[in-house]
Amino acid sequence: MRRLEFQISEVFTNIRRNGILSLAAVLTVLASLAILSLFFLMQRNLQGLLEEQTRKAQISAFLKPGLSEAEQQALREQITAIAGVAQVEYVSPQAALARTIESMDLSAAERKLLGPENRLPAKFAVHPADPAGIESVAEQLQKLAGVQDVRYGEKVVAPLNELQRRFRQWGWGALVVLSLATCGIISNAIRLTIYARRREIRIMQLVGATDGFIRMPFLLEGLVHGIVGGLLALLTTSVLYAQVREASAVIIPWLKLISLEELMPSFGIGLVALGMLFGFGSSLVSIRQFLREA
């Protein structure tokens, strides 16, 4: 107990004495974790965007003109029975026109140009359960008797799916690489704090301190640096991200960035925990290496 007391008091003496190096270590943790978490947020947003786009994917099954009410009903049942269909929605020619007008944001004058006659066919809007299964659902719809034509934005959906898959892989890969780089940078900063005290460590070894005893204050220091750096990174990221989100709401209104509150306790805890882990881990690796060399 007495030893622990001595060690803890040494930790704070050291942080005070090596103020500049401590500050450098904290700032290193702060900067690298802030970059890491901003990258993470960017990845999450892009991922969310892609997912939303694929989720929106739907198949339009245009009906042959002149189907009776009963035939339409039968067709709906046939469609519902297809494997991989989540939802079927009837869109009347009037509704289709209204949607088109809305989506194109037409002015009254432009609307007049369309003329009084609505030549749009009726259709079923079919939502696949899994965006990846959209092609096979479309194929089966095509075979149905009452269906004249099938459209599902085939030019967009397949590449989007591919992009999403690749993005997930690359995103995580990049996150791992960035984490390793972060660890490297932090452990270099920690190594400096050890180097600054090499004489003291040598004296400790000379008078018979165990490796564990020598290591302890460095591990605690690493932990403190990690926690403080992590908290500052959380603060910085929150402020920066809130501003980015505010700006994007004005510049790109359709782009809905994830709010940090949505990610909140886990994002904050994760960031500080990562700081602790990096701080502690880097110290452990560096001091072990140093003691082994001595």
Partner: peptide, 11 residues
């Protein structure tokens, strides 16, 4: 005292 501290001597 440092030589005693690091080996955990009685205060």
């Amino acid at each position: 005292a440092f030589a005693l501290e690091v080996i955990g001597d009685e205060p």
